[in-house]
């Protein structure tokens, strides 16, 4: 039986099973708190610890799964292309909103990380945390941050955004659906977008576009920033 625990096929199957369970739980509850990735990470994490399996053993299955990340990121071009006419029609507000939002995200991470006394290593991992995970993780690694911190921070940001942002934005006087969608997508990527879709079609489309645009702009900002400031 112990051989099973070192088999990558076993951990692969178990990972898929836990994730599928997470998806089911989210569908049943409809709550952004029940994020499938979070549920799967908790379940597999508990199983790894309970069976005394090291992360190195899991990694052979992990590498198989993570292989699909790069093609999945490249595939983000498809939803952007499908919404090209919406992008053209609202080009200026989308670009301006996502640019200022991305810049604010980076600067506020630097500010609050310093305020809360976070280490330099952790701060580097948090800088790109508002954008979609594949872009955030690639940027974090470029900056010398730890990818797992970034991955967790991105998921948490999405969940916080999905729960708080619709009410928060209404409180500060946001009534326009274009404005609402762009703000949610820029600040809380795909998890936020799933909530924006529930608010309305315009909110959802705008939020979805903002994922890609904010991701690309953040990549440019971080690249320029790291060239300028080292």
């Amino acid at each position: 039986m112990t051989e099973l625990l070192s088999s990558s096929t076993f951990w692969m199957a178990l990972s898929i099973g836990c994730y599928a369970l997470g998806v089911k739980i989210q569908q049943k509850t409809g709550s952004p708190l029940c994020n499938p990735l979070l549920i799967a990470a908790l379940l597999v994490g508990v199983l790894l610890v309970a069976t005394g399996t090291t992360y190195q053993t899991y990694e052979s299955a992990g590498q198989l799964i993570a292989f699909f990340l790069t093609p999945a990121t490249v595939a983000l071009a498809v939803p952007i292309y499908r919404k090209l006419d919406v992008l053209r029609k609202n080009l200026v507000p989308i670009l301006a909103g996502a640019l200022v939002g991305s810049l604010t995200s980076i600067l506020s991470v630097l500010l609050f990380s310093r305020l809360f006394g976070l280490s330099d290593l952790t701060t580097r991992a948090l800088v790109p945390k508002s954008v979609t995970t594949p872009i955030a993780v690639a940027l974090s690694e470029m900056l010398g941050g730890l990818a797992p911190i970034t991955a967790i921070a991105v998921v948490f940001t999405g969940i916080v955004g999905a729960i708080l942002l619709p009410t928060f934005l209404k409180c500060i006087g946001v009534r326009n659906p274009v404005q609402m969608g762009l703000s949610i997508g820029t600040a809380a990527h795909a998890v936020g977008t799933s909530r924006a879709l529930e608010l309305g079609e315009t909110e959802g489309a705008m939020s979805g576009l903002a994922i890609g645009v904010a991701g690309l702009l953040t990549a440019l900002l971080v690249s320029f920033g790291s060239v300028l400031f080292g």
Binding site: A96, G97, F156, V160, F168, N176, V178, S183, T186, A187
Partner: peptide
Amino acid sequence: EILAILAVCILTTLCTAAATAFTVHIV
């Protein structure tokens, strides 16, 4: 650092959304 990381995530998410909303409003 976990609590501080979570706090940074919450605060910066609100800042980012507010800045985006404000910019779109101006545009």
